Simulated assay, not measured.
Amino acid sequence: MDAVGRAGSAGASVAGTPQGRITRGTTGVNRLRRVDRWIAAHAAARVPGCLVVDLGYGASATTSLELHERLSRANPAVEVLGLEIDPARVALATAQLAEARLAGPTRYGRAIASDARVSFALGGFEVPAPRRPQVIRAMNVLRQYDEHEVAGHWATMLGRLGPGGLLVEGTSNEVGRVCSWVALDAEGPRSLTIALKVDELGSDAMEAPSVVRERLPKALIHRNVPGERIHELLAELDRAWAIEAPLADFGAVQRWVATAGRMRAAGWPVTGGPARWRLGELTVAWSAVAPAPSPAG
């Protein structure tokens, strides 16, 4: 959606026009399951009755309905607001929500209780909402923007968060098996998470963990070149995965857990532990992958 600072208070953009550009809108059932699972475990999403914004949900209500379902398991009073800058998408998602409430499971996603706190509205990076959200999820949105635009859009969204709030911004492939995201708070970017369907690693579609290079967040995707930290991380991750090949007989998950442990032992600031690693995740502190400063002049 633009350096990390404070934006205005609640409400829409100055001219009343949503900030941003219309995305392709591609979405699908379960595409964002990995990031949803990670958000659901975060303290920001467990604040009773918190507001969570699904920014740029795309051409259907699917991802917003799924987000609500996953978060409500631990936080029954959670509220999800889907925002799009295309009025036609807002109208369609609202109609799909009504259908999901009445008819149970539909092709748009899962059934939803009649009193579930889900809604859709027109909005972009300015995040117009009735109150400050605790979480903003902006997946597959900044991919179409230029790298120099990222920091400003981060700042705008961060300026809308409530105290202790969380911004999650990243990219996934179309079926959700390869994805990555940056987690940000009021101080800026805090971590990068890579999440893979690890039992497909080694296949033609996912030859090695570095397959995520094609789905890195916009702030990093063009930095996967020699001399940059993200390039070093992915190269080291591939090496660690290869070294742990003997564990393949015990399953891909065991091999991934060992790979994550090896990365931590090598000095990478890997957070979490086996419980998260078994889900195919690897989270590192942002300082380990932050882009190198541009040369002066």
Rank of each mutant, 00 (worst) to 15 (best):
A3N: 13
V4Y: 04
G5D: 15
G5V: 14
R6P: 15
G8V: 14
S9F: 13
A10Y: 11
A12N: 11
A12M: 12
S13V: 09
V14G: 15
V14A: 15
Q19A: 13
I22S: 13
I22T: 15
I22G: 08
I22M: 12
I22F: 04
T23N: 10
G25W: 10
T26W: 11
G28T: 03
N30R: 13
R33K: 05
D36W: 06
R37V: 05
A43N: 01
R46T: 09
V47Q: 14
P48Q: 07
L51C: 08
V53S: 06
V53K: 06
L55V: 05
G58L: 01
A59D: 14
T62H: 06
S64I: 01
E66V: 03
L67D: 01
H68M: 00
E69R: 12
L71W: 01
S72Q: 12
P76R: 09
G82F: 05
L83P: 03
L83N: 02
E84F: 00
L92G: 02
A93I: 00
T94A: 15
L97W: 01
L97I: 00
E99K: 03
R101N: 01
R101Y: 02
L102F: 00
L102Q: 05
A103P: 06
G104D: 04
G104Q: 10
T106F: 01
G109P: 09
A113G: 15
S114I: 10
S114H: 13
R117W: 08
S119A: 15
E126D: 11
E126F: 05
V127G: 01
V127R: 06
V127N: 04
A129F: 12
P133D: 00
I136R: 07
N140S: 04
L142M: 12
Y145F: 14
E149G: 02
G152T: 07
A155D: 09
G159C: 03
P163S: 14
E169S: 15
S172G: 08
G176Q: 08
C179S: 13
W181R: 00
W181A: 00
V182R: 10
D185P: 10
E187L: 14
E187T: 15
S191R: 07
T193I: 08
L196Q: 09
K197D: 11
E200S: 12
S203L: 06
D204V: 14
D204Q: 14
A205V: 13
M206V: 10
V212A: 12
R215A: 09
L220Y: 07
L220V: 09
I221M: 13
R223D: 13
E228L: 02
E228S: 06
E232G: 12
L233S: 03
L234Y: 10
L234E: 11
E236D: 15
D238A: 05
R239I: 08
I243G: 03
D249R: 13
F250C: 02
R255F: 05
W256K: 08
G261C: 11
R264W: 11
R264F: 13
G267N: 07
T271A: 14
L279Y: 04
G280F: 02
E281D: 06
T283F: 04
T283V: 03
T283N: 02
V284L: 11
V284Q: 06
W286H: 06
P293I: 07
S294H: 09
P295S: 04
